[in-house]
């Protein structure tokens, strides 16, 4: 198949269509607007619907409705808009509805700016809404992965009846790269639980459980489901980690910079490796546990476009067994290879 030069944000929509997504509900916001704009163009052409909602709250509730009624559906936004969707996301998770949410992160807090940040990690991975819920969270680092991980998000979301998020940053969304599109998904799983009028059954989709015992039971069921995801769905990329003494950790655009960091250090004779989580939830905790136990490994070094959010999960997994360094940039600034190497060397 030939490659197409395309923006990451547009690749999301091509991927969604290949995954059989039928409905897109969105609201403009920079740097995610091209996703809605591409949806406005492609979805109706292929028999689906695109609707610009009155707000992000409108959009996520349209997703709630469409998901209850059993179609593959999605929404996309950027950080402030995602904050606004949080109530709906908690309900979707509570009601166990599959849907895909794309977050092209920008600088915060508040209106912040439209430059890239990764400071939505906590609100997506830890649950920005209320209640004990988790979101399957995938972190692309190229336009190709904007397509591929969107498709995977649909698959996992259906498999676990759980919302799935593609957590990208402003650069990955805006960048143009060649993308090779895979074959369309042929079989979309049945959804016997969905609200559909049948003569002999009554399905109710809801997230309310008034009885404390029943709500606890529901929560335990959700937790068991999340444990199942942690067992089966961890995905990551490890580059030159086999003989590495220093593991660099980052996701999204940062992982591409870290790749250059690793190559530069290797050229200097320093045994560096890159570890890039593709799933932020489930987090690759067992892999970090293995790093912590590996006598060859001297240190880990995390780089993030936030005050340091993912690093908490790394530190929990490493649990003090190895030094974990950290370099962060905020406000839309992106670190250079040189800067990261300096910080790494200072930390040693």
């Amino acid at each position: 198949m030939s490659k197409v030069l395309i923006k990451g944000n547009e690749a999301v929509i091509r991927g969604a269509l290949l995954a059989g997504c039928k409905n897109f509900f969105g609201y403009p916001i920079t740097p995610a607007s091209e996703i809605a704009e591409a949806a406005a163009y492609y979805f109706p052409l292929l028999g689906g619907t695109f609707l610009q909602a009155e707000s992000e709250i409108g959009a996520i509730n349209m997703v709630y409705g469409a998901a209850s009624y059993s179609t593959r559906c999605m929404t996309a936004s950027s950080s402030p808009g995602i904050s606004l969707k949080m109530e709906g996301i908690s309900y979707l998770a509570g009601a166990e509805l599959p849907c895909v949410i794309i977050d092209v992160m920008r600088g915060g807090p508040g209106l912040g700016n439209i430059a890239p940040e990764q400071s939505d990690y906590n609100q997506i991975v830890k649950g920005g809404g209320h209640g004990n819920y988790r979101l399957i969270t995938l972190a692309p680092n190229s336009a190709q992965e904007m397509c591929d991980l969107t498709m995977l998000a649909f698959e996992l979301s259906d498999k676990y009846r759980n919302p799935a998020v593609v957590l990208a940053d402003g650069i990955i969304g805006q960048m143009m790269e060649p993308v090779e599109f895979p074959e369309p998904v042929q079989v979309i799983p049945e959804r016997p639980w969905a609200v559909r009028g049948t003569r002999d059954s009554h399905n109710l989709v809801c997230s309310i459980q008034l009885d404390p015992d029943l709500l606890e039971k529901h929560n335990l069921h959700l937790q068991a489901k999340y444990a199942e995801m942690a067992k089966n769905e961890i995905r990551y990329e490890a580059i030159r980690c086999d003989d590495a003494e220093h593991i660099f950790i980052g996701y999204g655009i940062v992982s591409r910079i870290l790749h250059s960091v690793v190559e530069t250090l290797r050229a200097e004779g320093i045994k560096a490796g890159l570890f890039r989580p593709l799933t932020l939830f489930p987090f690759p905790t067992p892999q970090f546990d293995a790093f912590a136990k590996d006598p060859n490994i001297k240190s880990l070094f995390v780089c993030e476009l936030s005050a340091g959010q993912m690093v908490d999960d790394v530190r929990l997994a490493v649990n003090g067994r190895k030094p974990v360094g950290l370099h962060t940039r905020m406000g839309g600034n992106v670190p250079t290879v040189k800067e990261i190497i300096e910080k790494f060397k200072e930390s040693r």
Binding site: P28, S33, E37, A40, P44, F50
Partner: peptide
Amino acid sequence: VKTKTTYY
């Protein structure tokens, strides 16, 4: 009217 989200 044609806009970026009302292509048709």
